[in-house]
């Protein structure tokens, strides 16, 4: 990212009594610059919780970024600030570059992608490249909080490590609170400051083992 980080904007993301689907009364506070991992068996509602935080689905409870409640912003302004990167990214234009509205050259190198990638047609991308470009596409829009749904699912080990390092650095540098859905205990150990797990309809702090 070219511009200097604006740490004055760093704000915690907090959830209070959020309910969506089977989940009830979820409360959580994500500190700026820190990564919290979210795990749980498949179908337990991890993705839906992220969708509720991004306000893509009707839900109950209060979600705030700093002092600002979700409802104080319009839907798109909120999602621009609290950005969700889904497990499977979608591409609507023919060329990769058309999906980028901001400069992202530095990120390309950090994610082990060549600068020409932006001129490629989307069809040419592998699933791993798509996943990294989706992360870059989201982060280049400068959100203030980040929701990641299995961001390294399609990556090999080396690329996973590079991607993790970049995300950790981005979170720290821009003071973004990050909620990261992950399965791999090793990955959780590497990136997370905190770890919460969905059990039934609740969220529990997971112990480090």
């Amino acid at each position: 990212m070219p511009a200097a980080p604006d740490l004055n904007k760093a704000m915690p993301l907090s959830l209070e009594g959020v309910a969506i689907g089977a989940l009830e009364d979820i409360s959580l506070c994500l500190a700026p610059g820190e990564i919290t991992c979210l795990s749980g068996v498949s179908g337990s509602g991890k993705s839906r919780l992220l969708r509720a935080i991004a306000d893509l689905e009707p839900h109950e409870g209060e979600i705030r970024l700093g002092h600002q409640p979700q409802t104080a912003l319009t839907g798109h302004a909120w999602r621009q600030t609290v950005m969700l990167v889904p497990a499977e990214s979608q591409w609507w234009a023919e060329d990769v570059g058309a999906h980028f509205t901001h400069d992202c050259r530095e990120g390309l190198a950090a994610l082990d992608l060549s600068p020409e990638t932006l001129d490629w047609p989307v069809d040419r991308l592998s699933s791993g490249e798509k996943q990294r470009l989706a992360l870059l596409r989201a982060l280049s829009r400068r959100p203030q909080a980040l929701l990641l749904d299995e961001p390294t699912a399609n990556l090999d080990h080396t690329t996973t490590l590079a991607c993790e390092a970049w995300l950790v650095e981005q979170a720290r540098q821009h003071g973004m609170p990050v909620l990261w859905v992950a399965h791999d205990p090793e990955q959780i150990k590497r990136v997370a400051r905190h770890h919460v797990r969905i059990t039934g309809s609740r969220l529990e702090a997971a112990s480090w083992t």
Binding site: A54, L56, T74, G75, H76, A77, R79, Q80, T81, M83, L84, V85, P86, E88, S89, Q90, W91, W92, R137, A138, R141, P143
Partner: peptide, 22 residues
């Protein structure tokens, strides 16, 4: 048919008019 694309565009902070423009 394009619900995933529209939602992904919403996730990136696009207003609904832009997300559904195509």
């Amino acid at each position: 048919q394009q619900r995933s694309v529209i939602e992904n565009r919403l996730m990136l902070g696009q207003p609904w008019q832009e997300a559904i423009s195509d």
